[in-house]
Every structure is written in C-alpha cells, then in structure tokens.
Simulated assay, not measured.
Amino acid sequence: MTTDFTSIPVLDISALRDESGPGYRDAVAALGAAARDIGFAQIVGHGVDPALFDGLLERTTAFFALPEAEKQKVYIGNSTNHRGYVPPGEEVFSAGTVDTKEAFDLSFELPAGDPRHLAGHPLLGPNQWPELDGFREAVTAWYDAVFALSRVLLRAFAVALGEPADRFDRHVSAPPSQLRLIHYPFDPAAADRPGIGAHTDYECFTLLRPTAPGLEVLNAAGDWVDVPLIDGAFVLNIGDLLEIWTNGEFVATSHRVRKVAQERYSFPLFVNVDADTVVAPLDAFRGSGATKPTVVAGEHLFAQTAQSFRYLQDRVARGEVTMPEGAQPLDSFGRDALLHR
C-alpha cells in the first residue's frame, strides 16, 4: 500500500527516447515514482503520430457499427488463440458484474504455420480479421507504433529499478501483448452497471488511449479516483507481472470504468513479455517479508483470461483446455487484493 493519492500525475516522457540524453534520468525517476506511489500516470510527449489514432478510431467505429451477424463472424470463441469479437456479457470479472461493453481483441501476429501456434498454444498465432476495408491496415499501424513505445517504457522501468535497461526487454520477441478495441455504448435508460468491473491488468503494464472520461483508479484508502481525459495522452498503469518482479514495490493498481455518460471508445495495449518467460521477484526486492508467487507470463495471462471469459470457462468445463498448474485466482494482485486481506 502506498499513497492515498487524489489525482493522477501527467508525465512528459519525450526524454525517454534518448537514453544518453540530458533529461533521461529525470524522466526515468518521475516514471519510477509514479509506479511506486500510484501505479498510474498519464503520459505526453510520447511521439506517436496522431493520424494513426484518427485512422484507428475511424475503422473501429465502422466495425462496431456493423450488424451483429457480421461481427459474430469473427467471434472470439471461433479462435483457438483468443482473437476476435467479444460481445456484451462475454467477459465477467471476479465481482460477477456483467460489463456493458463490446470489444475486438488481437495480439502479436504470428503466421498460422508458426510452431507455437501449431503446438496449440492458447495465446499465440494469427489474428482474426473482419472483412472491412482498411481495418486490418489501420489497426496494425497503431499496434506497431504503440508496441514500439512500450519497449521504450519497458527499458525505462528497468532503469528506474536499478536494473540493466534490457532486464525486461530482453524477454520481448513475440509476446502475447494484446490490443483491445473497446466500445462502451451509451444508453441513458440502461441499468446502472459498470462499463467494465474492477480488476488489475495481467501483464507488465498497459498503455491506454480513451475517447471519453470514465476510468477510475482505487487508492490506498479505498477511494475511487477519476482519471480525467487529456487529449492525445496515454494512460499508463502497472500490471501483475511488474508487481511480481518488484515484489510489490510497483503495485498493479485496481481500476474500473463506471457507467459511461456518453459513447466511449478505449484502446488499451497490454504490454507483455514472451509467453515462456518465468517471472519471479528480482533479487534486489526479496526482503524479509512475503514474497510474490512465481508465474510463467503466458500461463498467468491465460489463467486469468480463462477465469473471466465465458467461452473459455465452458471449454475448461468440457475438458477441452486445462488451467495451468498453480493458477492464481482473479484479484490476486493490486490494491483491491491488499484492501481485502
């Protein structure tokens, strides 16, 4: 538990793009402080071309405006590696709340003939793509740009922890870093249900671009703090794997999306390391207190995903897929978990 923060810091990370530049160390220190004290920040000066976001939003809006039958042609349950359309009600978090959102999920693209996909890895392989002009091109361009930014930040986090810059980045070759295109419809007559329920993110950290307010973050006092919309900024938050690697020095802060007051689109990239990466507390953070569990990055992601998606719950129940040994329950990390111990 860190601070009873009441606002989210805004960080200019332009200096992080030059690791030998004069402002690099100060920018790293600010990033590290936000990760330790809050687990969230808004970042500007990131260098991602605004035109890429315009193209992404235009094609995403067109996809979610398609008839339901067209969207269901790329239903995520048709995939063997968790890619495709997520209809409302498909995803349920540990509190049991049914979200009022729909989504399209994709990840690092591997060809259908890649040995890891052919071996049946539940998170690796090709994406499903709808038959929609320009969709794949716009989404891929955005993915590539934000993925490149994520590697800059991954190196900066390592330096902020006193580790070599490539401490985490060395584990990045074809990670299951998932991009979600999320649509929160606005219906003033609908029940007062959350856009998305309280949770932590399962990977290293998340880079999010929303189009409207709605995101809330849980502080150490148990209060929900609003994340205001800043035009052009990314929202960054710590995930489970950096909490494990730092043995809790960085906390995967719990967050949610309240019932939206207007139509909202949201684009989180969940930044991961390669699926076979063993994640355990680094030696520098092993103290006399409790030690975070060791996980395998891909197994942890799949276990958490399988507990929150109905189609995967059904596959587990039918014995078609099995949960990884030692799978952590939902809500095992973050401030929400600490508050309820």
Rank of each mutant, 00 (worst) to 15 (best):
A156G: 10
A220Y: 09
A317P: 15
T294F: 08
L149E: 05
L31F: 05
R36H: 11
Y265M: 11
T305M: 05
D226L: 15
S266I: 12
V28K: 01
E263S: 11
F270G: 05
A198D: 04
L154V: 02
R335A: 13
R193D: 06
D223L: 12
L312E: 03
A252P: 00
S7H: 06
S20E: 03
A212R: 13
V321S: 12
A261I: 09
T277A: 14
A317E: 15
A158M: 04
L282M: 01
V316N: 02
V48R: 02
A156V: 08
G84K: 03
T97Q: 08
F205Y: 04
L229I: 08
H183K: 09
T97P: 01
L236Q: 13
H255V: 13
L207C: 06
R151D: 12
L181Q: 08
T97R: 05
R318M: 12
T305V: 07
V217Y: 10
P164C: 05
A337C: 13
H46R: 08
I43H: 00
F64C: 07
G23V: 14
Y75N: 15
F53Q: 02
V296D: 08
L118V: 15
L154P: 00
A30R: 14
Q178R: 04
G134C: 06
I8R: 00
G289R: 04
S308F: 10
K292G: 09
E249I: 10
N78V: 02
T322S: 14
G113K: 03
E249L: 13
G287C: 09
A252H: 00
D99E: 15
T305N: 00
